[in-house]
Amino acid sequence: MSQDNNSNIEITPEMQAFYQRADAIIALANNQLGPDAHSGQVGASLLYAAARYSASVASIGFVKGDDFAKEKEDIIEFYVKQYRQMLSDNLTDYAQNFEKYIQLNKADGEAE
């Protein structure tokens, strides 16, 4: 699961829903693995989907494409900062729990 294992953090219902959505998306990605798609290919598709969805979300509230385009660099900066922090947190978690995650992945045949 993608949750922070720090026992000092209370998992609110909103956080639980966040992690459940993320886990559902990871499960969908894992279901795409097979003879025609390895983890690198599925990961690339997942990144593309995240970028495509984020562009759509970022466009909400704009009336004109020109106004939206003017905000492009700020939008990119926001999403890159968020992704960098999430990736860093998950790399740290994965490194700290490496043996456990490797055993789970071997048992499940998943890429998570």
Score class of each variant (00 low, 15 high):
S56E: 14
A37D: 02
A95L: 08
A111L: 07
E110K: 14
D23C: 04
E110P: 01
M15R: 04
K64F: 15
K81Y: 08
L28T: 08
H38R: 12
G34D: 01
S7K: 06
G61A: 09
L46S: 06
E110G: 04
A49K: 12
F68L: 15
F18V: 02
S45N: 10
A17G: 02
F68A: 11
A107G: 10
A55W: 13
H38G: 14
Q96P: 02
E77F: 11
A24L: 11
Q32G: 01
G34K: 02
P35S: 14
A69V: 08
F98C: 01
I25R: 00
T12I: 02
D108V: 00
I9C: 02
D67M: 06
D89L: 10
K100V: 07
Y53A: 15
V57Y: 10
N31T: 06
R84Y: 12
F98I: 05
N97G: 03
G65I: 05
Q85I: 13
Y79E: 08
F78W: 05
T92F: 05
S59G: 15
I25P: 00
Y101C: 00
Y53F: 12
V57K: 14
R52H: 10
G109D: 04
G109T: 00
P35G: 15
F78Q: 06
Q96N: 15
S2A: 08
L46M: 13
F18Q: 11
Y79F: 15
A69D: 11
D93E: 13
S45T: 04
K81A: 14
Q82F: 11
K106Y: 01
A24N: 08
R21L: 09
E99K: 12
A24Y: 03
Y79Q: 03
D93Q: 07
E10L: 04
D74N: 15
I102G: 05
S2W: 00
Q41K: 10
S54A: 15
R84A: 14
A22L: 13
G43R: 06
E112G: 13
R84T: 13
Q82D: 15
Y94S: 05
G34M: 01
